[in-house]
Design a protein around this nucleic acid. Structure first.
Lengths: 227, 227
DNA sequence: ACCTGAACACCGTTCAAGT
DNA sequence: ACCTGAACACCGTTCAAGT
């Protein structure tokens, strides 16, 4: 056999929206939020900066498209409902993991309220809220409370990760210095912060996150059927 | 009396950190997050762009200093504790109002986790959590849950306000178009989102926000004393 | 000690011009 | 229809030079 390439394996893939989004995700994951640049993206895709605008409206569009891709995967990972409580936990945990793996996701989601990525999450949460027996006229509030808590937590965790990365510290070391700063706060003005500084150092993000979810679910159960 | 100015009322106020921070807040309030620019700030302060760096480390420093000024005022507005429940509600509401008045605050706070502004809020929440009778080893989790929920909600509301502003729409009109988009989503994939689209249009941010706080507080009360 | 403002190394986005 | 890449109008930050 001559060594002519049998199947030409044409790299013919002219730029695609999906190709761009995937490259954007890689860039965000490896270089952080500031690493997503049209120039860097163009370089990685071996094309001109302007070409990207043919497939993507602008940077916001790109950013929320990247988020949506991650959220879709996360929602697939979340196993189908067992009990409503378990379903809510599963969705929350899937998002927690996703935000942990992609620290830019939190800020992307909060920058695009009401857009597809957050609606996907709300949809999943809402169905469980319904299954939980929360009265119709409270379901919006209930699902939003869960979503907002979820976004709040992961936003903070992600910010921690981002800052730790920027300063080139381990996450643990970063929390350590933070806890140190807290315990040096004024004793009169910040008794609580000083008291919990140790817990800041030692706490388990995931466990605390789920405990918060349980708190809200517990509150929701009290609404069951009632009115 | 001759019209020589009695007290020279010297404008002598050479640049001050506080002057800069106040100007930054005005800029953020009037021109949005993108309006805070060292050049714009310098123009407003009638100085050179570089001068600002003498009093402020960098843009992040300026941003969280501006946040802190707002948070301090908000915490002062929150009346001293009545019952713990009322205290938590008061802190939450004060922050809600602050974020409503300064839509950039949400993103500023989530960008500076563990820094002074958020610690101030956590401190206030934590004391109420303690007063509520939550066991010591759960107080960190409890206060964080409240804080994270609070930041999550206001982040979303603020993002709504920012986007509505950018597109030059009334907030209500923005929610209207959003609700329209939701009700046009695929019926198979988004039954819940379609169902609550109307509530998205009509809902009261503040009421829903407080309902969520109550949900968490309700969950916290179940922890009282126990363990 | 504090301020000036030009200079540096970037951005997102546009748009004529190419294929 | 899709891509190129120079050009435009910005940024944050630095730093010699001034007072």
């Amino acid at each position: 056999m001559p060594d002519t390439v049998a199947t030409p394996s044409r790299r013919a893939d002219s730029l695609t929206r999906d190709t761009i989004i995937d490259a954007a995700i890689v860039l965000l994951d490896t270089a952080g939020e500031g690493g997503l640049t049209f120039r860097a993206l163009a370089a990685r895709l071996a094309t001109g900066a302007g070409a990207i605008y043919w497939h993507v409206a602008d940077k916001d569009d790109l950013f929320t498209a990247a988020s949506d891709a991650i959220v879709v995967r996360a929602m697939q990972d979340a196993p189908p409902d067992d009990t409503p409580q378990a379903g809510i936990r599963a969705v929350a945990l899937a998002m927690f993991e996703a935000m942990d793996a992609h620290p830019w996701l939190g800020s992307a989601l909060s920058r695009a309220p009401g857009q597809l990525p957050t609606v996907r999450i709300l949809e999943r949460l809402g169905r469980q809220v319904d299954a939980l027996g929360v009265p119709q006229d409270r379901q919006w509030m209930a699902a939003c409370a869960l979503l907002n808590y979820l976004l709040g937590v992961s936003g903070q965790n992600a910010a921690n990760a981002v800052i730790a990365r920027e300063r080139g510290l381990e996450r643990a070391h970063f929390l350590d210095t933070l806890a140190g700063a807290w315990s040096r706060l004024d004793a009169q003005a910040f008794p609580f912060a000083r008291k919990v500084a140790g817990q800041l150092r030692a706490h388990d993000d995931r466990a605390d996150f789920l405990a918060g979810i349980d708190l809200i679910v517990h509150g929701l159960q009290a609404l069951q059927g009632g009115r």
